[in-house]
Simulated assay, not measured.
Amino acid sequence: MTSSSPGDLAVDGPPPDPDGADDLGVVVRGVRRTFDLVVAVDRMDLRVPPGQVTALVGPNGSGKTTLMLMLAGLLAPDSGTITVAGADPVTRSSAARAAVGWMPDVLGQWETLTCREVLTTFADAYRIPAAQGRARAAELLDEVHLTELADSPARVLSRGQKQRLGLARALVHDPQVLLLDEPASGLDPRSRVDLRVLLRRLAAQGKAVLVSSHVLSELDDLADGAVFVSRGRTVDARTVAEMTLSTRRWQLVALDPDHLRTWLRDHGVAEVADPAAVRPDHVLVELPTPEAAAALLRDLVRDGVPMVSQAPASGALEQVYLGLESERR
């Protein structure tokens, strides 16, 4: 990563892909998009490899949705290049759209159509034979647990049910690339788990999955890597493994918090004062490496401190996100 100033970070464009994986995933190089005088995306770089789930993380107004719309072929960039499954969404729009499953954060719908009709209509739009389209619709309705509502009009669905129908709609043509904008919004806990299992399975099948979400704790369990954006630019990109290795804040819970605090004080381990991060009966410490965290837990147990748990104080993505200087406004 290169930096032009502390508050204006940029990363080098994606390196060449010697294995040709770019032909199955997404590559964005130096993309810019403006709306009148507003710069929504400013020389952004991104890679979404096949076989992985990539998180797109950034605050409101950082350019995430604008980028997603360009990847889906619904907006054209002012400059820079985009390839989706090897196709440019502007110059080869039919090939790019055939490869993409796009799920916006709000399901646009024909309210009089049933859930089944929504899916068969989209199957027809992708020129899937009618019988195959009906079978695919039934399969996907079962996948997203909407079979009981298959012949109900879409207008009666709850917010979470509409999200599940939107996901099924994005999958109707079995795309190589999935673009999901806030897919878990409105989902109940069981449906969130089902979504995570489904997306991991699709990635295991070789699909490239890009997920934009503000719920970073869920992305920790889902994503293989993350791209962080701010003010229209890419400011960081890491694998989840790299982020986990950089975890520094750990939350300790003991049956006797006072005993724990006394032990830490006697052994020169400072407690971090951060009341927004933990409950009063939890103890927050900062450690340089995961190995140091393992050694601390070993010593606590050896000395008879009744430990209940030790874990990162927040998810890996959240720690990286909160540590970005570009987000300190």
Rank of each mutant, 00 (worst) to 15 (best):
S3C: 13
S4I: 15
P6F: 12
A10L: 13
D12A: 15
P15S: 15
D17S: 11
G20K: 07
A21F: 07
G25H: 12
R32P: 04
R32F: 13
R32C: 14
R33V: 09
R33G: 05
L37A: 15
A40T: 06
D42A: 08
R43Y: 14
L46G: 11
P50Y: 08
P50I: 03
P50M: 06
G51C: 07
Q52K: 06
Q52A: 04
A55H: 02
V57I: 10
P59C: 15
N60V: 14
G61I: 15
G63E: 07
G63I: 12
G63Q: 12
L69Y: 09
L74R: 11
L75W: 06
P77R: 14
G80F: 15
I82A: 15
G86T: 14
P89G: 06
V90C: 15
R92I: 01
A96G: 11
A99Y: 03
W102Q: 04
T112E: 07
L113H: 05
C115D: 03
A123Y: 04
I128A: 08
P129C: 07
A130N: 06
A130L: 05
A130W: 06
G133A: 01
R134I: 06
A135T: 15
R136I: 05
R136F: 02
L146H: 10
L149A: 06
P153S: 05
L157I: 01
G160P: 00
Q163W: 03
Q163S: 00
R164K: 02
L165D: 00
L165A: 01
L165N: 01
G166R: 01
H173K: 12
L178Q: 10
D181T: 12
G186I: 06
D188N: 00
L195P: 14
L198Q: 12
A203G: 11
V209P: 05
V209G: 11
L210Y: 07
S212I: 08
S213P: 09
G225Q: 04
S230N: 13
R231Q: 11
M243D: 06
M243S: 12
T244G: 14
T244S: 15
T247K: 09
R248G: 01
D256E: 03
H259L: 14
L264F: 09
L264D: 11
H267C: 00
V269P: 01
P275L: 07
P275I: 10
A276C: 04
A277H: 07
R279W: 08
V285T: 00
A293E: 03
A293T: 02
L296M: 08
L297R: 11
D299T: 12
D303W: 00
V305Q: 02
A311V: 03
P312M: 01
A313V: 08
L317C: 01
Q319I: 04
V320L: 09
Y321R: 10
Y321H: 14
L322N: 03
L324V: 03
E327S: 14
